[in-house]
Computed example of a mutant assay.
Amino acid sequence: MDDLAFLTYSLISIFVIVNPISGVVTFISLTSRMTFEEKNILAKRAVFLACIIALFFAITGKMMLDLFGIDVDSLRIAGGILLFHVALDMMFAKVSRESITENEISESQDRSDIWIFPIALPLLTGPGAITTVIVLMGSTDSMVQRSLVVLSILITFAVCLVIFLFSRRIYKYIGYTGMLVFTRIMGLFLAALAADFVTTGIWNVYTALSSAT
């Protein structure tokens, strides 16, 4: 895979699992009592923290896998199954139980640190997003491609910041129905990504076992 194709693949993979458009509804509900200034400050903090978390796991993920003796293809298979579960929730327009539950959203309404939980973690960087960046980093074979994964993370969260800063306007023009349509489309792409993770992981494990014997 050449660098441009890898950048496109990485960017789509990370953007689809972060899926900031579908997070707009939750973000608006959590910040409905805030002024525009307070909402924007919270959005900047949350997106910045989420980006730092994603970059942290992208950089240290390989070391963590080595520490626990886990092969990247094993994580790819497990992550694919997790992403498929998230994709099903998205296609049925449900709040993904992988990220946050309805009860957690309700309980967060009156807290002052909602930019940390549940917005930055796990709404933007849940287990699915963390798994995706680790797998992408583990799939690289050059420093250039590792840099492209980092660039994909930065672009994704830059777009996410813009979407959250203009969340109320976006919701006004797109509406709840538009959000549902977009979420279902993203769910379809995520399901395809999950299938790719699982099939690639299984094939790589099979190839490794065949070579060993």
Rank of each mutant, 00 (worst) to 15 (best):
T131G: 09
S74A: 15
S112Q: 08
L124P: 08
M137K: 08
R76C: 05
F117I: 14
A120V: 08
S112C: 08
S96P: 11
M137P: 06
E107G: 01
G128S: 13
I134W: 03
S139W: 03
D89L: 00
V86N: 02
L124D: 07
S112H: 13
S99I: 04
R111W: 02
L136P: 12
S139N: 12
T131M: 06
T131P: 03
I77C: 07
Q109F: 07
S99M: 01
G80K: 04
I100A: 01
F117H: 14
N103G: 03
V135D: 08
V150F: 08
E107H: 14
S142E: 06
F117M: 14
F84N: 05
P118M: 09
S147F: 05
T125L: 00
H85N: 08
T132I: 09
P122E: 02
H85F: 09
I105E: 12
S142K: 04
A87M: 02
P127H: 09
S74E: 14
W115D: 15
A93D: 14
T125D: 02
I105D: 14
F117Y: 15
G79I: 12
D141H: 04
R111I: 05
S106V: 11
T140W: 00
L82N: 12
V150I: 15
L148R: 06
S96Y: 05
L88Q: 09
A78G: 11
Q109E: 15
F92V: 12
T132R: 06
